[in-house]
Design a protein around this nucleic acid. Structure first.
Lengths: 272, 272
DNA sequence: GATATGCATCGGACAGTGTGCGAGTGGTTT
DNA sequence: AAACCACTCGCACACTGTCCGATGCATATC
């Protein structure tokens, strides 16, 4: 309390507008909203607590009153953005295939619109209300169609997995393009050259790579996504019928002679 | 603000010729190997350049002579660990379904054994020699089976997407358990309670959640993975037959009335 | 009115991080 | 001998997430 360095008058210091008691300057929702703005505008690595605090006209550490840590904040942001993927209307009448398509395309759209969610989805735990609602809608539709018990979760899980796995790399690609300041075409060019070098030892790979049509990446990606989704749904439909008939042995496993180990053996991997 | 112009992947640069004395103290391979040890033993966030340098008895910044930056190092590590997923034997005789299973289970095993790769796969560009070899084997088998042109890439892409999307959350789960110091069961308990709270407003969700059997997570996950994979392969098989017959219109899209937008519209999402 | 209690905010500090820069080292070539 | 080179390293910079203790302010209590 010795000396407040240079003299600053009390009056010179503008006092921040303190609001009433029941309405503190910062709120969790406000913080999340501001964080979303930064994330959408500048991407994941642009979000720092200090920056977020500054955007809200608050100190960086003030945020920690409303949010435990940065990870928790990201969890909140993730679920918040998942609200977009929710479908409001009556979904009871939809076929399970339509429901799956709604889910898959909705998720994909959301991820494309908010590229920063891709690395988070599947890595952060997703138990927020919106996440539950989205997957819940899918599950309800599948259940109504006749999927029950384990099969129900298997089937929905497969759709979720495919959607995630198909969209994540796509989004990463867009992220890179957006992150640099060169056009997508230039990017593609350098990419082709890179593969050319990397695949120099695999002539057949190289040939296929050269033959591939890399133009119109966006459309290609969309078609790829749709193709895989329909294929998966077709496969699920077969299984649904088998399941409804309640007869016949469960269809054989995917492993015949292939895998290096049993599918049930590796439950306990991890690090020491 | 990471990558300005065209983020050249490691694989694009050919290694400069060595001119000096036979072996310098540090080598790229040695660095990658040491990094892998840290990653496998302590996970992703335990890897810092200083720590890695110390492990090699070298200064932190010495590494930057052999490796452009940390991202490039991770790219190298990723591809290095993908060598495990390569199948050495003759793969020409395998059916395409077997090849797909080999790929999917091999990938899954690798990811489970090295949990840190999960967040990287699909986010980092994968053009390393091992990545190319692994997906190449899959592509070759599919091509031999009759998949050609676009369909070939669609089909392999679907398998890759599913494998990635299904395994990533599973690995994340294991990561969390391993990262904390509570047992998997305790974790599961607190998780259930969280869902209980989060899903309080959705009685049917809650009921399903209560009914679900969460024990033996590892086995459940394995069965889920297998189920989805087989379903997807079944769907692909249908498409392969259609494609071989060369007749009939391409099967209809997954979208009937559902999706919020056309599948080809959203190619240019991103940030400004 | 004076005082105590609580929520909310803030500045400073700590232990890290990745990495640019310039100096230094020892062997190879001219 | 001098120049060159591949290579290593210490320092420093800007920046990160987050803990801690001090401060203000609004209300409940005396």
């Amino acid at each position: 309390m010795a000396n407040k360095p240079p003299f600053t008058s009390v009056w010179a210091r503008e006092t921040p507008p303190r609001r009433g008691r029941d309405q503190p300057a910062l709120s969790r929702g406000q913080i999340v909203r501001a964080a979303l703005e930064i994330l959408d505008a500048e991407g994941m690595e642009a979000l720092s607590m200090r920056k977020l605090g500054a955007k809200l006209g608050a100190g960086a550490t003030s945020l920690y009153w409303h949010v435990a840590n940065k990870d928790e904040l990201l969890e909140l942001c993730l679920d918040e953005v998942l609200a977009e993927a929710r479908v409001p209307g009556p979904q009871g009448e939809r076929s399970w295939r339509d429901a799956a398509a709604v889910f898959a395309y909705g998720m994909r759209q959301t991820m494309l619109r908010h590229p920063w969610v891709a690395p988070l989805l599947g890595v952060l735990p997703s138990f927020g209300p919106n996440a539950l609602a989205v997957t819940g809608a899918l599950t309800v539709a599948f259940e109504r169609a006749g999927f029950t018990g384990r099969i129900l979760h298997y089937a929905t899980g497969a759709v979720v997995s495919y959607t995630l796995g198909a969209t994540t790399p796509e989004v990463s690609w867009l992220n890179m393009v957006a992150g640099s300041d060169v056009s997508a075409d230039e990017w593609l060019d350098t990419l082709r050259k890179q593969v050319e070098v990397a695949a120099a030892d695999y002539p057949d790979l190289l040939a296929r790579h050269r033959a591939q049509d890399y133009s119109d990446m966006g459309i290609t990606k969309s078609l790829t996504f749709d193709f895989g989704l329909v294929a998966l749904l077709d496969g699920l439909e077969v299984r649904l019928r088998h399941h409804l008939d309640e007869a016949g042995p469960p269809p054989q496993s995917a492993q015949s002679s292939a895998p290096p180990s049993s599918p049930t053996e590796d439950a306990a991997a991890g690090r020491g």
